[in-house]
Amino acid sequence: MEEQNLMREQAQVLTDRAFRHQQHGDLGDAIALYRRSIATYPTAEAHTFLGWAYAIMARYEEAIAECEKAIALDATFGNPYNDIGAYLLETARPEEAIPWLKQAIAAPRYATPQFAHVNLGRAYELVGRPHEALAAYDQALALTPLYLPATWAKYALLGRLN
């Protein structure tokens, strides 16, 4: 048990370092560090962040695969569901994105569900369901009233509907 805790701590240190590299745009080092972290002790967070690094490079299928690994490790973690939905939106597959975004919203361990609500609104707009999109934007704003992407999306859509 002690060895497992040590491995988990080492993996977290590697994930933290990888994230700092990613924030500075050093994706190659970030990816290498995420992989080392996963090899040390796989976590849903490390797989999700590795997927995010791939997505920044427009490697969406690899990003989705990492998010699926994250979900396999921890199905309660909302981030990878939202990320898959976002990557599907980026690859012009909004209908496929909708169920993933709904799962993100329902996930018990998700600190930023307003992101998934806005992405769901985007997906609904793209498939021609504007009233459902407005409801999704309103849900995001109910959670975080000052979340500007939700405000901008809502009022842009309202402007197009008038």
Rank of each mutant, 00 (worst) to 15 (best):
M1G: 10
R8V: 00
A11Y: 14
L14W: 07
L14A: 05
T15H: 12
R20Y: 01
Q22D: 14
Q23I: 06
D26T: 02
L27V: 13
L27Y: 15
A30C: 10
L33T: 01
S37F: 11
S37D: 02
I38W: 10
T48L: 01
G51R: 07
G51E: 03
W52S: 02
M57Y: 00
A58T: 11
E61R: 13
I64A: 04
A65L: 08
E68G: 11
E68F: 00
I71T: 11
L73V: 07
L73G: 03
D74M: 05
T76P: 01
G78V: 06
G78A: 09
D83Y: 06
A86V: 09
L88K: 13
Q103R: 15
A104C: 11
I105P: 13
A106D: 09
A107K: 11
Y110G: 08
P113G: 05
Q114D: 07
F115V: 08
N119H: 15
R122Q: 05
Y124D: 03
L126I: 00
R129W: 00
H131G: 00
A133P: 10
A136E: 06
A140H: 02
L141G: 01
L141P: 03
L146Q: 14
L146R: 15
Y147L: 09
W152Y: 09
Y155E: 15
L157N: 10
L158W: 00
G159P: 01
L161C: 04
